[in-house]
Write a protein that binds this DNA or RNA. Structure first.
Lengths: 341, 341
DNA sequence: TTGTAGGCGTTATCAT
DNA sequence: ATGATAACGCCTACAA
């Protein structure tokens, strides 16, 4: 590493003025001589001067960098979300320091620690599916770095969070199935530690009891979100003497594995059994067995909202007793009639 | 923003020693008193001291941050690539500053400028499909920030780059089709400005002429990679009086749009017309019409290699006359026999 | 209108 | 074995 970038000091030297004059000229300070300002700006351009953000932020004790921690960017949901975060961040002149947890709490902690050392101005995080304790994040917050959770958020109230109301959409979903005559409605849910799973389960129960239907827990399965876990769950559902007529999957990835297995078992997808899901991935249009219906959770919007919430959180005094809970509405999207197959 | 992080200065004050003593103790400097070292470390732990990377890197004139610029993380290829970059970066204790160009050269330049201001130690970039001039990146390099291109790389030799040899895999692909009796082989290529497109075209021509087949340019179409562009290309191919018996798509996304349209036109995919492609997306297993064959370009490996190359580039003296060109091998992956449909 | 000086957190170079 | 101090690039209150 050589060929250094020019500094205001060098500009000052060449122009025989002081560094403060250069600094002020560059910032269009009102009471600076017009021609001095011009001379400075001219030379700065000539020397390709680019201000050293490191130095500025070091001085100001801010970095204009937001850390973003996601489980896995391979999932379309999260890649959309980070685009939303990035778009909003750009508007506020913030930059994104990025890290994936790969659903490993140890990696998650390491990534967050690195970000703290980098002195990011805030951290936006969607928790790993295996994370139980978030004390390390509370500590981060205590140290003056606001934390905003999104989508995979903790249950507790004393955090900033942005999420979709899955409880309500699940009720809508079950109602939709009910209105079309489906009565044996099964669910392949996600890991029970996730708030998202709890909300799906509660919505499911609530909708059924509203319809005076009794809840048969044999229709309720869980998956660890791996292909094997989902296949196992589907297998159990198909082995029931009273095979379900509809299956609600935790998300479109689970849906794809479930339908792939069911198809291999000779099930005619969406004819013998109706399949519905969550996420509304764009890839759904190209898949062999799209869900009849998918809940759109607006990851891009959630990303934008997370950054907006971060902006507000950063203005708060620390420690704070004012926590933001932003709810992004989810909507049902009907598929399956788009392409004749 | 309040509740500041403790500094070595505060530790020094509390222990009645000098800051240099604290600094040395924390770094296990050999000639420091054992019990002093212990006392310092103890208090540091107690006060939850975390070194300020901003200050350290400011002093050392390095940030341990690598800028990564990609067209769009929504494409699985790039989301895999960034995971590879991240994995390698972590090993070398580097962090990732992330930005997307969304295939817009203006945004690309803005992102790169921001990274320069942030004084990243290097930039790894996959060019936007609309970028023609890379002079702004040469300038970045002249300023002492090494630039490593990957996948979407410029043609010229005076750059560091990491890429797959698509020329060779294209020949393999055509040979595979030829050996199975296909003679009317069409191609839906990408934008001609991309090296990747040129290599596909050249491999295509080379393979055909090796087989003494004449090249019929009516079998050669291009797409701007949008759904509309691809549909238009496929439409033209289907309207030929001599409809092709095989179609090579630029990548799996183009393939999906092409097959979706062809299916709607009544074509029996991979029966009436054989479809092959590039990228080997994991989603391929779940799509309605997987390609018979897809070229695996190992995005994760390319990402890792990019970071390795970056490490070497950063050790070079600037300006450099030593440029690294790393070729990651591509391989053919056979599909279509996995699931009976 | 412009200059001077101090300071942000850390490391490195001299001293002691 | 430990302390004092300068330096990194920039900003800003205070002086002139």
């Amino acid at each position: 590493m050589s060929s250094n970038n020019p500094t205001i000091k060098e500009i000052a030297l060449r122009l025989n003025v002081s560094v403060s004059t250069v600094s002020r000229a560059l910032h269009d300070h009102p009471r600076i001589g017009l021609k001095t300002r011009e001379r400075v700006k001219e030379l700065a351009r000539e020397m390709k001067y680019v201000p050293n953000a490191q130095a500025i932020f070091f001085k100001k004790q801010k970095t204009a960098v937001i850390g973003v921690v996601l489980p896995s960017i391979k999932e379309e949901f999260f890649s959309q979300a980070i685009s939303g975060i990035e778009a909003a961040a750009t508007q506020y002149n913030y930059t994104i320091l990025f890290g994936q947890s790969h659903d490993d709490p140890a990696i998650e902690k390491r990534v967050v620690d690195t970000m703290k050392r980098q002195r990011v101005d805030g951290i936006i995080i969607s928790l790993s599916k295996n994370t139980h304790k978030i004390s390390f994040l509370k500590e981060i917050e205590m140290a003056g770095i606001p934390v905003v959770f999104f989508d995979r958020v903790p249950d507790q109230a004393d955090v900033h969070k942005v999420y979709c109301d899955i409880y309500k959409s699940t009720i809508d979903m079950v109602n939709w199935l009910y209105s079309r005559g489906f009565r044996k409605i099964a669910m392949i849910n996600g890991p029970s530690i996730l708030t998202a799973s709890r909300e799906r389960l509660e919505g499911y129960k609530q909708a059924l009891s509203q319809k005076k239907m009794k809840i048969d827990m044999r229709y309720f399965e869980s998956t660890d979100l791996t292909k094997e876990g989902t296949t196992h769950a589907m297998k159990k559902l198909l082995s029931l003497k009273n095979v379900p007529t509809a299956v609600i999957s935790f998300n479109d990835y689970v849906h794809m594995d479930a339908t792939q297995y069911a198809h291999l078992q000779g099930i005619n997808i969406n004819k013998d059994i109706a399949f519905v899901s969550y996420s509304n991935l764009s890839i759904t249009d190209y898949t062999a067995y799209p869900p009849l219906l998918s809940v759109e959770q607006y990851p891009y919007g959630q990303g934008e909202q997370s950054m907006e919430t971060m902006i507000r959180a950063m203005k708060e005094q620390h420690p704070t007793h004012q926590y933001y809970h932003e709810e992004v509405p989810a909507t049902l999207v009907i598929h399956g009639t788009k392409h004749v197959r």
